[in-house]
């Protein structure tokens, strides 16, 4: 009866593991012995050895090709954890929310480039009620801490707005989206139902979170209307290419005034 190891020890797997220094000393010695005594094994080893290529050198240039700034921005855009404690009212846990966020991205990855152009209108109900409901739910999880109290980094904001604008087909700059009495915090891409959703966040005069959200929509222009969701005031409107909503804790009059300003600037 033949020793099962006899065949195994001379297999490509073992010879490659030998070349890779992955064998224990006992097995290594067996192979060294085989190389000396068996020409076929020595020849095979020489053949396999010719694939010991400079793999690291070959792949190192790829590191320089990585869009580092863009990736940094994507990372920075991911919201810090939303404090779970004081915000139980909405019934959304942070975990559920983040799971959903991952889901959005996964869908975005697959669908983004193929479908986004085709399906530029939201397939929600008639007046896009669904996306506003999701945004309101999402915003109800925000606290002033979510948006941070650090100094405003205008360069980062400019870049974020440019990226978001590019995805949505809008020209966005800090000047254009600045709102009186509010502090611009950041801009980021989210997704709703596979559609790109731009979110620009602010802290209002009372340091409460506020957001302007934008999706592409071909449902036609619609005059501003208002509603109350999750304890916040919402003003929403659309033009030929986009649907907008401004949501925050300020009084309805204030939200209206701010949305008027945005409407003028963003249609221009």
């Amino acid at each position: 009866m033949t020793d099962p190891n006899r065949e195994t020890i001379r297999s490509d797997e073992m010879l490659v593991a030998f070349l890779d220094g992955e064998l224990d000393s006992n097995t290594r010695e067996q192979i060294e012995h085989l190389i000396e005594s068996d020409d076929a094994v020595a020849e095979r080893l020489r053949f396999l050895m010719s694939s010991s290529l400079p793999f690291r050198d070959a792949f190192d240039p790829l590191l320089d090709k990585a869009p580092k700034a863009k990736l940094e921005a994507l990372l920075a855009e991911i919201s810090p954890p939303v404090p779970v404690v004081a915000e139980q009212t909405s019934g959304w846990t942070r975990r559920g929310f983040l799971a959903a966020a991952v889901g959005f991205i996964a869908v975005g990855v697959a669908v983004d480039r193929t479908f986004l152009g085709v399906q530029s209108s939201l397939h929600a109900d008639q007046d896009g009620n669904d996306w506003r409901s999701v945004v309101a739910q999402y915003m109800s999880l925000y606290t002033s801490d979510t948006l941070g109290r650090g100094p405003v980094d205008v360069a980062a904001q400019t870049q974020q707005l440019r990226d978001v604008g590019a995805k949505l087909g809008l020209s966005l700059t800090p000047e254009r989206v600045q709102l009186p009495g509010a502090t611009l915090k950041r801009a980021q891409m989210l997704a709703y139902d596979g559609n790109a959703l731009g979110q620009i966040t602010y802290l209002d005069a009372m340091q409460q979170p506020m957001a302007l959200c934008i999706v592409q929509s071909s449902k036609g222009a619609k005059a501003p209307d208002s509603e109350h969701r999750h304890g916040m005031n919402v003003v929403y409107w659309s033009n030929d290419t986009h649907a907008f909503m401004l949501i925050g804790h300020e009084s309805l009059d204030d939200i209206k005034a701010m949305s008027d300003r945005l409407r003028q600037v963003l249609t221009a």
């Binding site: 797997e13 073992m14 490659v16 396999l48 010719s50 694939s51």
Partner: peptide
């Protein structure tokens, strides 16, 4: 892992041609 590496290296070795690479293993 071992069998995939072995298969990959056999393939790479075949296309690399042994002349160029002789003794370059480390």
């Amino acid at each position: 892992v071992m069998s995939r590496l072995a298969a990959a290296r056999a393939k790479l070795a075949a296309s690399a041609g042994s002349d160029k690479m002789e003794g370059s293993a480390s």
